[in-house]
Amino acid sequence: MSTVATPSVDPVLPTRLPIRLIDENGIVVVDNEENGGQTAGFGLPDVDTLLDLYRKMVLARRFDAQVTALTRQGRLATYPSALGQEACEIASVAALAPTDWLFPTYRDTIALLTRGVSPVEILSFFRGDWHTGFDPYAHRISPQSTPLATQALHAVGLATAAKLKHDDTVALTFLGDGSTSEGDAHEAFNFASVWQAPTVFVIQNNQYAISVPFSKQSHARTLADRAIGYGMPGYYVDGNDVAAMFAVITAGVERARSGGGPTMIEGLTYRMESHTNSDDPTRYRDAAEVERWRSFDPVERLEKYLGSIGVLTDEVRLAITSDAEDLATLTRDAMNEAPVLDPLALFDHVYAQPRPALLEQREFLARELASIEPGTPS
């Protein structure tokens, strides 16, 4: 169990500096006048929790690197990497109960992995085999959303339904900095606050909306500042500090579950890779900026801290690395197997009761397929 401390009073506005509990050098942050009380009253999660978060981040990063390699080899159609954003995603999933729901974006694959979705189920989407390769109800994860911010409305809808049914389910949804400019995001924030829906909005501010830097997206000091306008608490967090992200998100989840309504959390992080494999980031950002952000690496930060207190021994590190390599091997092997696809499955799950026109189209395709001799290229 975590020993995260929840502040007794929600802040009206986010802190001036991002909340952090462990700095980039792996040193625990202590509140003083110089840093303006940067921990905001949150306590450091216990060692077992931090070690578990570290292990999950290492596995997620190895998976992400392997999938990126598969994409460059042409074995996947596209892939949006989350390299550098592991703290935001892993902390969010770790803070949820098994009965809670996660509403991801297209970039949040490692969150799905951490919540138990298999590599095959995840990557069928990016290979183009199927719209969603996993059962949303089995994992309590909605299909990955490509349209920006639509999943936020879905999260609020489910959370509101849970509240009406007196169910203690919490919905957590990811948003990017760019998606907060969408009308859907505004509607979700406002509806959640008006109806006090048990929702946690985690904004991964990775500095770019594809190629548009944050400075050209908003003139606000932080995105979390917007929370006060909707009447909900907003937190501005160091998104590369998994300890801080876990502490703040856990507080938001507990607040929502206890009837306290929604919370907006902005994690200040950075997208290390390109937007997708079709993007050339050198056209809009320079190498010096990327290198500067490498010094804030979320995995290395926690590794330094756990090593300094003697928890992350060579033996433990080797075991985690071995598990990560096993996962990479499993992923490669899965993508080396050709999928078995049924073209007629295209018509499944379109309507609960198929319409005559759809059935007619299905029958037409079935006849076309039957006319093709086995082994004939289609």
Score class of each variant (00 low, 15 high):
R107H: 08
P233Y: 06
E254R: 15
T173A: 00
L83G: 10
A87I: 11
R301P: 00
T3C: 02
Y305H: 12
V117D: 02
L44Y: 06
G239F: 00
S193E: 12
G41I: 05
S378I: 14
E89G: 06
A91H: 01
A334S: 15
T99N: 12
H219R: 14
L164K: 10
D48V: 15
A338S: 15
E360F: 09
S142L: 08
L70N: 11
E363Q: 13
I309V: 15
V242F: 02
A40M: 10
D314K: 08
P14W: 02
L76N: 03
A185W: 05
E368L: 13
Q144R: 12
D48L: 07
V316L: 11
T160Y: 14
R72P: 03
N277V: 15
G36R: 03
F125W: 09
T109R: 01
R62T: 15
L268I: 15
R255G: 09
K216F: 05
T329R: 12
T105E: 04
G229Q: 09
K216N: 12
R61L: 02
A224K: 08
A220F: 09
A162N: 06
Q38L: 06
D31K: 02
A192D: 14
T376H: 04
D129I: 06
T3A: 05
L76D: 01
E86V: 09
T105P: 02
T68M: 10
D46S: 12
Y235A: 07
T173V: 04
Q353P: 02
G74A: 07
A149I: 13
